[in-house]
């Protein structure tokens, strides 16, 4: 399989940071009551994760191993601070809706995790693809769960009123936790189904080859 295709599929599906690795849980639970905030947070993480991966990959041979984590934190904190300034200047509503969770991206384990596990071992192009894929995987999961929570908890979708029926619990972190758990279960079940089908297909192919050889 193409190297970049594998990195992309891993980030989006097979190692989805939110639904498979259960990383970045704090902003996930905090921002799931609004689909727009979830989407905004996800896209912000895509940009920060991609840039941090590229910078860390470029500096991987310069940064001594002993101080790599403080260096990563400084780079990520700089990018997050810049993102905060940018959003406050150009998108103040999104900045306000993300609140304290925007600053908490600094300690988001997805970003630090990808820097440590991937970016410091691969070239900038691969690190960039990994950043985009993982960021989009996080955005996809957060937005889908945000839509579910907003529809159930507020009776609206991306701020547009749908109906008056609402279950208040789903607009709170407690309801978000339930939706998060069910989403993980459903996602893992679907991925597991694909994996099983792929294994069965591979086994059939291997058996067919074996029979051909015996014949």
């Amino acid at each position: 399989m193409n190297k970049y295709k594998k990195i992309t599929l891993d980030g989006l599906i097979f190692q989805n940071p939110t639904l498979m690795l259960v990383l970045g849980t704090c902003p996930t639970l905090g921002l799931m009551n609004s689909a727009m905030s979830a989407l905004g947070m996800g896209l912000t993480v895509v940009v920060i994760l991609t840039l941090s991966n590229i910078i860390i990959s470029l500096l991987r041979k310069v940064i001594p191993n002993e101080v790599r984590i403080p260096c990563y934190i400084v780079i990520i904190a700089t990018l997050v601070t810049f993102a905060r300034m940018f959003l406050e200047y150009y998108l103040p509503d999104l900045h306000d809706s993300l609140g304290g969770f925007l600053a908490l991206i600094v300690v988001n384990c997805i970003i630090l995790g990808r820097a440590e596990a991937f970016a410091n071992k691969h070239n900038p192009a691969e690190a960039a693809v990994d950043g985009i894929a993982n960021g989009l995987g996080f955005t996809f999961a957060l937005t889908v769960m945000g839509i579910i929570c907003e529809v159930l908890g507020k009776g609206s979708l991306f701020g547009l009123h749908l109906w008056n029926f609402k279950i208040g619990m789903f607009a709170s972190p407690a309801g978000a936790f339930i939706v998060y758990g069910i989403s993980i279960a459903v996602f893992v079940y679907i991925i597991d189904g694909f994996e099983r089908a792929r294994r069965v297909k591979a086994n059939k192919l291997a058996r067919g080859n074996l029979l051909k050889e015996e014949a």
């Binding site: 500096l59 310069v62 940064i63 001594p64 002993e66 101080v67 403080p70 260096c71 400084v74 780079i75 904190a77 700089t78 810049f82």
Partner: peptide
């Protein structure tokens, strides 16, 4: 280590 960290801090600070 000290120089690397200081350089990164300086560049980030200026940026």
């Amino acid at each position: 280590c000290i120089i690397s960290l200081l350089c990164i801090l300086l560049v980030c600070g200026v940026f």
